[in-house]
Design a protein around this nucleic acid. Structure first.
Lengths: 231, 231
DNA sequence: TAGTGGTCTAGACCACACA
DNA sequence: GTGTGGTCTAGACCACTAC
């Protein structure tokens, strides 16, 4: 038994997603939907408000409720967790630490855009013995002083951070780049191979916690973003 | 004057996003929030339900409402519209059609994964006279027969489709690749330059409308996905 | 079993935008 | 003015589940 407001929402949503109702079409007014479903206005309002929050419809006083034009930007991007993803597919995951150093952020890859004293780590993510991704990470020692005591060979610094330091904001920048010679060696590929570069920065109440740059081989890793098909 | 339920939602949201409340912490029960804000239970419920819908809290009967652990996957990806983006930055946008053909989908780049008879177009997006992105697109003639009459030199096929054929579902796959010699010539770059590849497919009520593969120079184009900072 | 959220009602007044 | 959504109330009963 699904809730009535949920049934109303799905009814209308499916009419929109199926193309039966086109962008710009006007929905019945709340009063008519009350009659149609035999319920109170609050229930109808809850259903339509949910659609409005999801961006499927626009509501205007006096004018009514209209099917919105789908927005191509603002898709939902699924960024899988490396260790989890690999283990799910039945492969054996491991992180291999290549470099670890306490230093000033100025010494680290400038694309990470972090400041102050940091713990800088470089390593590779390995699936069934095969290098899968290269990672260069800086963790702010001001924000996370206790990370100095952590050990990173079975688990990656990312896993350690997830367990110990919750973040409240994150940003991921995606671009393509050719691997440098050092990175190519670590990954076991030819120089200048095309790689997908993910730079992720996380904050906690405005304070920068960590920045990481991960390189994936271009032909073996794909990110997918979706819009629609919420059913 | 903001609505009361909105004020309650923001109050609690800011306590979570600031890190004042940690994942796992329990929120006050609805009855206590009623007293705190001097309102009815429906109003409190609307505020907390919105937080639950946004994934910031988890609600459990008998147990209470708890701050959720932030999910790294499911970030919001902003995919800018090419023509719009370029014109906003004060540059002059143009699309140059390189190839146009009615053919069977089998002849087109297999990565587009489309079937049946299609209109296949290849072209480049140009900003201030400089090639910016390479595009190969297939449009289903079954779904959009009228596209045969369209002209694509001032506007791109994507722009035409946006105006004429609303879609209901979309998927974007992001990867990195080295450009082929033909693509490199069209873009005016060296062979094997690392590029960001976006493959987007759109549907309308389950029917495949179009698939497009766009290549961007790796060092001049970045996608950004965000989590948090909803204020 | 009892505490908590999930849902719903039948009203009410207000704010806005179009006529 | 008038029609539409925006918000809110003061209850009610139910469903789940941790205790």
């Amino acid at each position: 038994m699904t809730a009535l407001h949920e049934r109303i929402r799905r009814d209308i949503e499916s009419r929109i997603l199926s193309g039966e109702m086109m962008p710009g079409d006007r929905l019945p007014i709340e009063h008519d939907l009350m009659a149609e479903y035999g319920c109170s206005r609050m229930t109808v309002n809850k259903a339509i408000s949910a659609l409005a929050a999801a961006g499927l419809v626009n509501r205007k006083r006096k004018a009514g409720t209209f099917v919105a034009a789908p927005k191509a930007h603002a898709m939902v991007l699924d960024i899988p967790d490396l260790a989890h993803e690999i283990q799910e597919s039945g492969q054996k995951y491991r992180y291999r630490l290549l470099h670890r150093e306490i230093c000033n952020a100025g010494k680290v890859d400038s694309s990470l855009e972090i400041e102050g004293d940091v713990l800088w780590t470089v390593g590779v993510h390995i699936a069934d013995g095969k290098p899968f991704a290269h990672e260069s990470r800086a963790v702010s020692l001001t924000a996370v002083p206790e990370i100095d005591d952590a050990v990173f060979d079975p688990d990656s610094p990312g896993t350690w951070l997830l367990k110990h330091v919750p973040w409240t904001e994150a940003e991921t920048a995606i671009s393509a780049t050719a691997v440098s010679d050092r990175e190519a060696r670590a990954l076991g590929v030819a120089d200048n191979t095309a790689c997908l570069s993910l730079i992720r920065r996380t904050w906690r109440s405005g304070e920068h916690i960590t920045a990481v740059r991960q390189l994936f081989l271009g032909d073996s890793y794909t990110l997918v973003a979706r819009f629609g098909a919420s059913a």
